[in-house]
Structures are given as C-alpha cells and as structure tokens.
C-alpha cells in the first residue's frame, strides 16, 4: 500500500458515494447511464469472485464488499426504485460492442487460462471501457449536471492514481502487471477529454456543456 494506491481507492469509493447520494437525494437518476452502471456491477462480480477463495487483507475484503454492494444498490435504484426517472432514450450505447471484444480479448490475452484468471482479465478489460455509455450519454445530451461531473472526475481520477501506484510499485517493489497497466492506461485516456472540460468549465462554476 502506498499513498497513490490509497488515494486511488478513496477516489473510487468517493465517486460511488457521490453517485448514490445524488440518486437518493434527488430521487432521480436522470443523466446517469444505467448501461455503464450494469457494466460496472459486472466488472465487480467477475473480479471479486476471489473474495471467497483468496484472503489478502481486511482492507481488501471490506473494499470488495463495498464495491459489490454499492454497485448492486446503484443498479437497483436505477432499474427498480427510480426506474421512472431513468433516461433510457439517451442511454443508447450498444454494450455488445464492448462486451464481445472484452470476452474475446480476455480469452486470448491473459496470465493463465483458468476460469478465475480469465474472469479477472475480462473484468480488467471491461472496466477500462465501461464508462463509455456514460460519456456517450453526456455527449448525446450535450451536458451533465455538476454532481454527475464530480462523479465522473472522481471515477476517472481513481485509475489515473493507480497508474502512479503502478509506477511506484515497479520501481520500489519490482511489481508490475502488464494487463492491468495496459487497461489502466486505456481507461485513463478515455477520461482525458472529460478532465479537460471539467477543469476548464466545472471548476470555474460553469455547467458542463459541450460546444454545439
């Protein structure tokens, strides 16, 4: 554990809390992509199966349970409790374009051809692109509420901080995982355009509106 890793994890938890609070307080999931949230739930389900087979630390187990429970809660709020507020007309990204390549890639490029490893690899690949339906939705409507922008910024920061963590671990512990690094770089790059808009607009008190 190092400061980048801890900051990354905290940013991740923070992002999820922001999203849950936004939905709960406004009693609405307007502007949020249900497809991205389902993909994230799938990411946690396929990655944290080792919760039952491998014990790393109390911190590790607790965080895994938090991610599983919170993503389940988010999906429940969007598709059951506040279903009427879900803006599915704008949530039109075709998830099979993400799922099929991730399944194929995880079968082809993995550390070990076992069920657990392939599922872990699939979750890493899927996580890197799971935000695309949400970014597509923002670009389609041309705007995002401030709270949604804060959520996206925290969620994007998490993997960027993990990149620093991996650089640190490579030099200090000689530890590296090429699959995670590759996917983490892709994931962070996808947020770059959003980061730029967030810093130049949202932080200056303006709404996140894309140029027409």
């Amino acid at each position: 554990m190092n400061v980048f890793r801890l900051a990354g994890d905290l940013a991740h938890v923070f992002a999820i809390i922001i999203l849950l609070l936004k939905i709960w307080k406004t009693r609405s999931c307007a502007g949020i992509s249900g497809k991205s949230q389902v993909l994230f739930a799938l990411v946690y389900l396929t990655r944290y199966l080792d919760l039952f087979t491998t014990y790393v630390s109390l911190y590790n187990s607790v965080m895994k349970v938090i991610f599983l429970a919170s993503s389940g809660a988010t999906v429940y709020l969007m598709y059951v409790k506040f279903k009427a507020t879900y803006d599915h007309n704008h949530d039109s990204f075709r998830v099979e374009f993400l799922l099929v390549p991730c399944v194929l890639l995880s079968l082809l490029i993995n550390h070990d051809f076992t069920v657990m490893e392939v599922l872990w690899t699939f979750s890493i690949y899927l996580e890197s692109v799971a935000i695309l339906p949400q970014l597509f939705m923002v670009s389609k409507t041309g705007e995002a509420e401030s709270i949604t922008s804060h959520y996206l910024f925290a969620l994007g920061s998490y993997r960027a901080l993990y990149l620093l963590n991996w650089i640190y671990r490579y030099f200090v512990e000689s530890h590296y995982d090429l699959i995670a690094i590759f996917a983490g770089v892709v994931q962070t790059i996808l947020y770059c355009d959003f980061f730029y808009l967030y810093i130049t607009k949202v932080l200056k008190g303006k709404r996140l509106q894309l140029p027409a």
Partner: peptide, 10 residues
C-alpha cells in the same frame, strides 16, 4: 509465476 494470490489490488 503470476497468480491470483498476488492480486492485492482492487
């Protein structure tokens, strides 16, 4: 060999 045992990240 890199195995699941070494996956200590989230």
């Amino acid at each position: 060999r890199y195995t699941l045992l070494q996956k200590d990240e989230l």
